[in-house]
């Protein structure tokens, strides 16, 4: 399912839900009213969007730093023939929150998120040891904007 298969109501649901729901007993009630439909219909569409992968998950978005943890962005130059092996290794590590393949000499970019800040250096060292590849560690120094919703 590509974007072409999303109807305007699906788009409105994604648009609204990526900004978040109120923490109330019936969090979809207001959206259902705006869309002139029922909560059940909103939930059924959301379930379909999750099923088809348009929405990765519907869940609380946690702030690792506010929880006392730490986050950093890392990059590696992984040789093409080892790319899948290294991707699988990172996939299996719970500290790896995101990982993207990118067109660049540094072709693998991942975010580490840990509950205990002192773990970060150990995780970077573990990745270097297990892959034999140097990790470029680029912790955030300042944040100018963070994932406000994209107009879809």
């Amino acid at each position: 399912m590509r974007s072409g298969h999303l109807d305007p109501i699906d788009r409105a649901i994604v648009q609204s839900l990526q900004r978040g729901v109120p923490i109330v007993e019936r969090p979809f009630a207001e959206l259902a009213t705006i869309l002139e439909t029922t909560e059940e219909a909103v939930v059924a569409r959301l379930a379909r969007l999750v099923e088809s992968g348009v929405v990765g998950r519907f869940a609380p978005m946690l702030d690792a730093e506010k929880l006392g943890g730490a986050v950093t962005l890392c990059a590696m130059a992984v040789p093409a023939e080892r790319f899948e092996e290294v991707a699988r290794l990172l996939e299996a590590m719970p500290e790896v929150a995101h990982n993207y393949a990118r067109e660049h000499r540094l072709d693998m970019w991942f975010v580490l998120a840990v509950e205990r800040p002192e773990r970060l250096a150990a995780v970077v060292a573990e990745i270097e040891a297990r892959t034999g590849l140097p990790v470029l560690n680029l912790p955030k120094l300042e944040e100018y904007r963070l994932e406000l919703a994209l107009p879809v």
Binding site: M1, R2, S3, G4, L6, I13, V14, L17, Q18, R19, G20, V21, I23, V24, E25, P27, L46, L49, S52, G53, V54, V55, G56, R57, F58, A59, P60, M61, L62, D63, K66, L67, L150, V152
Partner: peptide
Amino acid sequence: VLARLRRLKEAGAIRRIAAVPNHYRLGF
């Protein structure tokens, strides 16, 4: 559960309760 989630949201530990879209699947 509602009270605890609200408290965590107020404290910033929860940024929001939301759908995480796959940008590619939305046509980006």
